[in-house]
Simulated assay, not measured.
Amino acid sequence: MMFQQQYLMWLAGIILLIVAVFSWRDPANPRRLTTGLFWALYGMIFLISDGVYQWMTPRTLHIAVGVAVVVMALIAGFGGVRLGRYHQRSDEEKQASAKRLGNQLFIPALAIPVVTVVGVLAFNNLPGLQQAVFGAGNHSTLITLFSMMMGCLIGWLVALKMTREKPMQSMQETRRLLDAVGWAFILPQILATLGLLFTSAGVGNAISHLTEQYLAVDNRFIAVAVYAIGMALLTMVMGNAFAAFPIVTAGIGIPILVLQHHGNPAVMAAIGMFSGYCGTLMTPMAANFNIVPARLLELPDRNAVIKAQVPTGLMLLVVNIFLLWFMMFL
């Protein structure tokens, strides 16, 4: 039986459902019913597979998922996701454990990227291994996801061994982190979907028309600057470079930089995404990156992270413009 990407979705869904059950059973959470419902609805979306179409039409399924997302938005909007009690150690026990482990605490976290890189290299350089696990065909994305999953699993087992905690306590910590992040946890997925909707609606074509009509994109440097700055600005509006990328690339990158100026599409895509990340550093819409850390660190200014990152974001954006200009037309 070959490994499929759907298995990863099911794993995520099962974890979210366990979090929902723990939330419902937590009397310390003042909104335990709505908190559990929020994570249960999110988990159910991950559990959907092609088998659902045997007893439900695609249109009915899409409506059901849409209703679930609307309910989640209402729960989040009315403050339905709250913190509870997570059976954590006392401060004294935490300090004693930290002192005992020292820098070994970094080992589980470092195991994730190390195992991911080793897995990707192994699958790409041992064709027989790739076919044995995934079957015939191109599985580049699945290889990365599978390797990262194995890294997370190994890091989790190492952490349990080092801390001498029970596996269920790791689920409590998962719930604690999810409750702390709250609605912002699903924001990247929602914004990426929004980007696809904008692309299907022809927003990219509208941007292309406005750019060609009102900007001097016949000049290579101006065209490059418009693309990079457009990526950063739209990312700031949408909160996610993945959501902005298909829109700006369809409107400016492909028709102007690639087709009109004959630029290298690979360079355009790589540095274009990097330009979008510059916008991520400077927007509250990227709540999971910029607002949540301020909340977790209990900073008095919720925009403190953004203010610290703005100079870096602007400098990187200028560097990206010149990188595109020099490298895209070699």
Rank of each mutant, 00 (worst) to 15 (best):
P30D: 08
D218M: 04
L157N: 04
D50R: 12
G230D: 07
G272N: 09
R25N: 09
T312S: 15
V237C: 13
A241V: 09
I291V: 11
T312I: 14
I186D: 05
M315L: 15
I247L: 00
V319R: 11
V158Q: 01
V19K: 03
I45Q: 04
T211G: 01
R25M: 06
L16G: 05
S200T: 07
M236I: 11
G313K: 09
T235Y: 11
L126R: 02
E173H: 06
L197Q: 08
V70Q: 08
N303E: 11
F185S: 13
L145Q: 03
M327V: 15
L157V: 13
I63M: 12
D91L: 09
H139A: 05
L142K: 06
G195T: 08
T34P: 00
M315C: 15
V305D: 02
S208L: 09
A40Y: 02
L142P: 08
N103D: 03
L259G: 11
G239M: 06
T174A: 05
V118L: 14
V318I: 15
I190R: 08
A269S: 14
D26G: 09
A136I: 09
W183E: 06
P58H: 11
S140A: 14
I222N: 04
T193Y: 06
R25G: 00
T211A: 10
L8T: 03
L281C: 11
L233W: 10
A192G: 00
G272V: 06
V310W: 07
F322Q: 10
L105F: 03
L74R: 12
I256E: 04
G251N: 10
V69S: 04
A201C: 01
G313M: 09
G43N: 03
N138K: 13
W24T: 00
S49Q: 14
I207K: 03
F3Q: 04
M282I: 07
I229Y: 12
D26I: 00
G13I: 13
F289L: 10
L83W: 02
F123P: 00
W24K: 04
H209K: 09
V118A: 12
L83D: 07
F245T: 13
L330S: 12
I252V: 15
G251H: 10
P311R: 08
L37F: 07
A232W: 10
A184G: 05
V305S: 00
L330F: 11
F123D: 00
A109N: 01
R302M: 06
A250Q: 13
D91A: 06
G80C: 03
L317I: 14
L178R: 02
G202K: 12
R59S: 15
W156D: 05
I75L: 13
A287C: 05
M168C: 04
A96P: 10
Q4K: 15
L314N: 01
V258A: 07
H209Q: 14
Q95I: 06
M150G: 01
Q213C: 06
M231K: 06
F106I: 06
A241K: 12
V21Y: 02
V181A: 13
V318A: 15
A122Y: 10
